[in-house]
Write a protein that binds this DNA or RNA. Structure first.
Lengths: 332, 332
DNA sequence: GCTGGCACTCGGTAGGATCGAGTGCCAACG
DNA sequence: CGTTGGCACTCGATCCTACCGAGTGCCAGC
């Protein structure tokens, strides 16, 4: 789409702008690799790149800054992911000593990504219906309150408080579990809500409440998203107003989840500015990678930073972390 | 300590400064209640309040702003907590329909506090050793990985991944649980690490790994802190630099926990600026209230905002939420 | 087609004038 | 003697102007 010289100029502008956050003038571009022409020629080319929509001028007589289209071209055609040796080592070390607790691991993974990129990191964990139930248990907390605890094969623990109508003893609860377990084991957690009615009316009364407890919290996808490094957002932007609106988005877990899902569903690994579909993220870019367990896409990792983000680094970090995380989770 | 007129003037300065964030001049104070003297007299009094350390001048010929000492006097002697009708209603509604999941409830409580005050909210949950173990279970995830799940009486679920040395079948795990349960039930979770050795060497091998898994994560206090409304921090300060440093603190859960504990231990319900003991919070104030379950202090709720925060509102909100939360948790 | 040269643009910075909110002080007053 | 109106003074904020310089667009010549 762009001839080689234009591409080199665009690359130079993007790379310098990412570093300095200042509009880039023709004089700075001349000594970039792939550009062995005078600044006057560069000026002509830059003017062309502007009319084609890749660059923009904040005002006449200023340098150029990349547009969304410019970043997009850079990401698609010019940037190649690269991870420095230290970071690669860091990732390896992390996953070598990672152990235990799936949720703790996902949380730690956001820390890893934040540390690697210096941007805010997001990890969306496997939805509840991916893991098959391995164990169901009903634990009495008080005579009128019990806790339903289900352990899934992927290590996730789902729990729901069940408020009992009447004082209920352990024997009844055990009866409920006996009814529940054969139905639920090996199935996704949600099917617990479909457990068939029991003969015994006392058992059935409790079962009804169990169904309700499981059914009410379908919105629990929010439980499985981890965000970290929000403070880095404030390091990325000058305007406190921008910081506020971006942080507000990051606080809404459901929004974050659907944002990531949306981007992944569109087959993108980078969403730049308005491509995110969210007005407050107009100055942000989102780099994501899905991760797979046993060949199935179960979650997403990503980083959120300014549009002028270090794409090669972010792309590499997100890709390798997603891959390693998938491996780690696959082996149990 | 201050005569009535000085107190009225101090109150007027603090209240206006909280609203406007602008230095307050003598002219604005004259028509405050309790001040029926001329601006010249007010000026004299304000100069006195300055030498006594309650007020400060950003520069000659500007109005006065409160010092930490000024805020402290305001909080101790002049501010009386007050919650507007709507907020009181909101709190009542929240705890009436609150149900289920202790952790979910604590998280929702931070949202409530953020909504009430428009400041960042923090809730520290009961430490693991408060809840007595009601149930222990060991669930096999893969042949070499099992999950230890303990349900505590207060509804908290503790879980630890246990990596098994060799392929281990359900029978062995059940044997381990049989050894574990009588020892742990009714005790704090931590004592699981002290389970006595088993006769059977295979069982004992697994037990050893269980002890390790329980013992390694003593730092899990961080698990029980919930922070919400960090975006409000960026609404409270002009300088993006300040926002960044405060957010960085809020992201470190262990720091937040020890900060709250420290403040509560000193018997304070408000920590202003340097009283927090953290340099990055020099421009912040922290309002906290412990909450009790069955008469025992088990956690803390609090809000973090700028030193020029609405103390009457924040004090009232934190106090009533702490109280209601304690009640709610006491009844199970 | 590329390049050096040149006139032009315009944001950013620095200096200077002005404005006004606010102060400290003092003399006068009840 | 505490209070008050008056007054000179201070100093940040705002506005204007001049100026600088990085950068541009264009053009004539190579």
């Amino acid at each position: 789409m762009l001839d080689e010289r234009k591409a080199s100029i665009l690359r130079a502008v993007v790379e310098e702008y990412i570093q300095t956050a200042q509009p880039v003038g023709s004089g700075h571009v001349v000594d970039a690799p792939g550009v062995s022409v005078s600044s006057a020629t560069v000026r002509n080319e830059m003017a062309a790149l502007e009319t084609e929509g890749f660059l923009a001028q904040p005002h006449t007589s200023a340098g150029r800054i990349p547009t969304e289209k410019g970043y997009r071209y850079f990401v698609d055609a010019l940037a190649q992911p690269s991870l420095d040796r230290g970071s690669a080592q860091q990732v390896r070390a992390f996953f070598d000593r990672a152990h235990g607790e799936i949720e703790q691991m996902l949380l730690d993974t956001t820390r890893l990504l934040t540390g690697l990129t210096d941007y805010a990191a997001v990890v969306v964990g496997p939805p509840a219906d991916v893991g098959k139930v391995r164990s169901v248990q009903l634990v009495s907390l008080t005579p009128r309150v019990a806790l339903l605890v289900a352990v899934l094969a992927n290590g996730v623990v789902e729990k729901r408080t069940v408020e009992l109508g009447d004082d209920t003893d352990e024997v009844v609860l055990q009866g409920v579990v006996d009814q529940l377990a054969p139905h639920a084991i090996g199935q996704p957690f949600a099917v617990v809500a479909d457990v068939p009615a029991a003969m015994d009316p006392v058992t059935e009364a409790v079962l009804a409440r169990v169904r309700r407890a499981v059914g009410t919290s379908v919105d629990d996808e929010a439980d499985h998203v981890f965000v970290n490094g929000a403070s880095r957002i404030s390091a990325s932007f000058e305007a406190v107003e921008t910081v506020r609106s971006v942080l507000t988005i990051l606080e809404q877990q459901l929004v974050v989840v659907s944002l990531l899902r949306d981007v992944v569903d569109r087959g993108l690994n980078v969403a730049i500015g308005s491509e995110t579909g969210m007005q407050p993220l107009a100055d942000c870019a989102l780099v994501v990678a899905p991760y797979t367990v046993d060949g199935e896409r179960v979650g997403t990792v990503g980083v959120l930073g300014p549009t002028r983000m270090n794409y090669p680094q972010a792309l590499a970090a997100v890709a390798v972390v997603g891959q390693r995380l998938g491996h780690r989770l696959s082996e149990g």
